[in-house]
Amino acid sequence: MRKLKEFPAIETERLILSQLKEEDLPFVTEYLQDKIFSDVTSNIPYPYTGEHARFWMKMSWESFENNTGYTFAVRNKEGQILGAIGLHDRDDDKAELGYWMGKPFWNKGYITEAATALIDFGFNELQINKIYATYFLDNPASGRIMEKIGMEKEALLKQHLKKDGKYIDVMMYSILKNK
């Protein structure tokens, strides 16, 4: 993953993707209170506390400093955080795409718009060759987003994650820089 000196801001038609800020913490904590986020992700606990949000933000800043990832706040044009999206280095010129969106902003195409911009950023700015993402099988909406942004189904990863003492199958999608 190519190292950038400063954290970038990416603008799309309706959104601004930018670095997380301290003032985002109360919104992140509020958005992630719903148990649905814990149910459909591997790394969002329930209940979600301000301490979790602070730790996540610290880790996102460190991943940028260490050149292992970029976690962007997904904002509307007024600057309000709606969710987050990131690319995280997995060596060999590939990165994992991950995202979440606050429930009031679901079904508006925001993640599709942000992910499209982030894939372009990953291929063109970071010189990544492959971007992949996974989703829990009981979250097919995430799979539809992956298809909309040009990813193709790659594999069913059986018992790939362990959450709350249970092994979980996930579907993996990917997109290559040069198809």
Rank of each mutant, 00 (worst) to 15 (best):
residue 5 K to H: 12
residue 8 P to C: 01
residue 9 A to Y: 15
residue 11 E to H: 14
residue 11 E to A: 13
residue 15 L to R: 02
residue 17 L to E: 04
residue 19 Q to H: 04
residue 22 E to Q: 08
residue 23 E to C: 08
residue 26 P to H: 15
residue 28 V to E: 01
residue 28 V to G: 01
residue 30 E to A: 13
residue 31 Y to I: 00
residue 31 Y to R: 02
residue 35 K to T: 00
residue 35 K to H: 04
residue 35 K to F: 02
residue 37 F to I: 03
residue 39 D to C: 14
residue 41 T to D: 02
residue 44 I to D: 00
residue 46 Y to K: 10
residue 47 P to Q: 02
residue 47 P to K: 10
residue 49 T to C: 04
residue 49 T to L: 06
residue 51 E to C: 09
residue 52 H to R: 06
residue 54 R to D: 03
residue 54 R to I: 02
residue 62 E to K: 11
residue 64 F to V: 08
residue 65 E to G: 10
residue 65 E to M: 07
residue 66 N to I: 05
residue 68 T to Q: 09
residue 68 T to H: 10
residue 69 G to I: 06
residue 73 A to V: 03
residue 73 A to K: 06
residue 77 K to Q: 15
residue 78 E to P: 03
residue 79 G to V: 10
residue 80 Q to H: 15
residue 82 L to K: 05
residue 85 I to W: 05
residue 85 I to P: 03
residue 88 H to L: 11
residue 89 D to H: 05
residue 91 D to N: 12
residue 93 D to K: 10
residue 94 K to M: 12
residue 94 K to I: 14
residue 94 K to W: 14
residue 96 E to I: 08
residue 99 Y to D: 08
residue 102 G to L: 11
residue 104 P to E: 11
residue 105 F to H: 12
residue 107 N to R: 12
residue 108 K to H: 14
residue 108 K to Q: 11
residue 110 Y to C: 02
residue 110 Y to E: 06
residue 117 A to Q: 01
residue 117 A to F: 12
residue 118 L to S: 03
residue 120 D to W: 15
residue 120 D to C: 05
residue 124 N to Y: 13
residue 127 Q to N: 14
residue 130 K to W: 04
residue 132 Y to W: 14
residue 132 Y to P: 02
residue 134 T to W: 02
residue 134 T to N: 03
residue 138 D to A: 14
residue 138 D to F: 12
residue 140 P to Q: 11
residue 143 G to A: 01
residue 144 R to H: 06
residue 147 E to L: 09
residue 147 E to Y: 05
residue 148 K to Y: 15
residue 150 G to R: 08
residue 151 M to A: 07
residue 151 M to P: 03
residue 152 E to T: 13
residue 153 K to T: 11
residue 157 L to F: 13
residue 157 L to R: 08
residue 161 L to M: 12
residue 163 K to N: 02
residue 163 K to T: 05
residue 168 I to M: 10
residue 174 S to N: 08
residue 175 I to R: 02
residue 178 N to P: 03
